[in-house]
Design a protein around this nucleic acid. Structure first.
Lengths: 217, 217
DNA sequence: CGCCTCCTGTGATTGACTTCACAGTGAAAT
DNA sequence: ATTTCACTGTGAAGTCAATCACAGGAGGCG
């Protein structure tokens, strides 16, 4: 089999985002005992065209059996290896507010290969306490804890003030990627990645769509 | 002025998403007392190219002063009108778990024109109680409360089980748009919009990027 | 008053992603 | 063994968004 080396060399980011969706549905199918699935079946289940699904899978050299379709179990492990979630990864969390605590108690992360190993805050009422079994450190301890727990990914759910400084310090300490829930524009340190989740912006987009639809009536 | 009628007739969704970002930065500038801003200034602040910013603004007929740039206050009101957030909108919330409660206490929504008017759950320990000042209704009361509060947008933060049924019922009762945090594939009712926020998928994307970068070393 | 500078709005171009459409193929049926 | 069938992988075409580049114009300055 020729897909062992560099199987993920040129996968577009759009494809990567869809791989997460495919994998989740494939795991559902696997639990139901399904062993093989055709492109048009999986495609309609997740809401993409069969051609796009085939191209996504072909982009990393997944060769499906022509008569039976794609092997579910094998595709799950392949996608997991591409996404880097085949081993449990430690991630950090900055900001133990309402959102931070919700993320700490979210069970879905562990299932997908992510473990929030450490939380950080500056509130004396929170520092030192346990939240959902995880210790909350003071932000001053950011660098040593990053090194100790080998954190490569950090979730940002703090107040907007001082966010850039936290990002820069974390990047200098070895963090390579940030998932940012904080609605403030940031500068991405060289060699790093920042992925934003802007809940208000999503609501505004929906508001626009609803308004546009009503006007077209 | 020729921009009064149909000012938002053909705005691409990519542009709409960026409008949210522009508006946030413009409000910051407004608080700082800035009255006019040039495209290259605002563009570098939010991380897009000046050409793209100009095209985004031109797509709904915003004519900036050539010498002074764009009028900050006027652009804020124009963008708000396009997004439909110039008036406060009621939205509903399904699922008062950790994430739901975090959303209920998030202050950013009101600032952006959204008010969570009602929450729904099926847990007897939660139904009837107040969360951050909002009453939690039983899911059985979905339809009458939607009608009473005139809910057009609903945030989904419940368990995956029965999600599609909730969507279908809400759509039948008049809800037109959903912001879905639940990691399950859904079928969009006709005439409705569903916007997904998949936190695990974002983490997986970051994991992929970090892994890819490490391999290219 | 006229020149000069810099910025906006936009036609044209480039680039990327999606979709179409079909050749090739493996398994099942006869 | 051979035929048939349906599916995969992929070249080609199509579509859409981002970028380039420049014409036109408003204000400042001599």
């Amino acid at each position: 089999m020729a897909l062992s080396r560099n199987e993920d060399q040129r996968v577009s980011l759009h494809t990567v985002e869809r791989l997460s969706v495919y994998r989740r549905k494939l795991e559902e199918l696997s639990h139901e005992g399904v062993e093989f699935v055709h492109s048009h079946q999986l495609a309609t289940m997740v809401g993409v065209t069969p051609a796009q699904l085939r191209r996504d899978l072909a982009s990393f050299g997944s060769y499906g059996n022509i008569a039976r379709g794609y092997e579910v179990a094998k595709m799950i492990t392949t996608i997991s290896r591409i996404l880097g979630t085949d081993k449990l990864q430690n991630v950090g969390l900055v900001g133990v507010g309402d959102l931070g605590r919700a993320l700490l108690s979210y069970r879905g992360f562990e299932e997908r290969g992510f473990h929030i190993a450490a939380a950080f805050d500056i509130d004396p009422a929170k520092v030192g306490r346990l939240f959902a079994g995880r210790r909350c450190y003071h932000l001053d301890e950011l660098e040593p804890v990053i090194a100790q727990s080998n954190l490569r990914i950090m979730v940002l759910a703090s107040r907007p003030e001082g966010l850039q400084d936290i990002i820069d310090r974390a990047a200098a300490a070895g963090v390579r990627a940030f998932l940012n829930f904080v609605p403030r524009t940031t500068v991405t340190p060289p060699g790093c990645f920042i992925e934003r989740i802007d809940i208000s912006a999503k609501l505004e987009k929906l508001s626009f769509l609803v308004k546009q639809q009503e006007q077209c009536t």
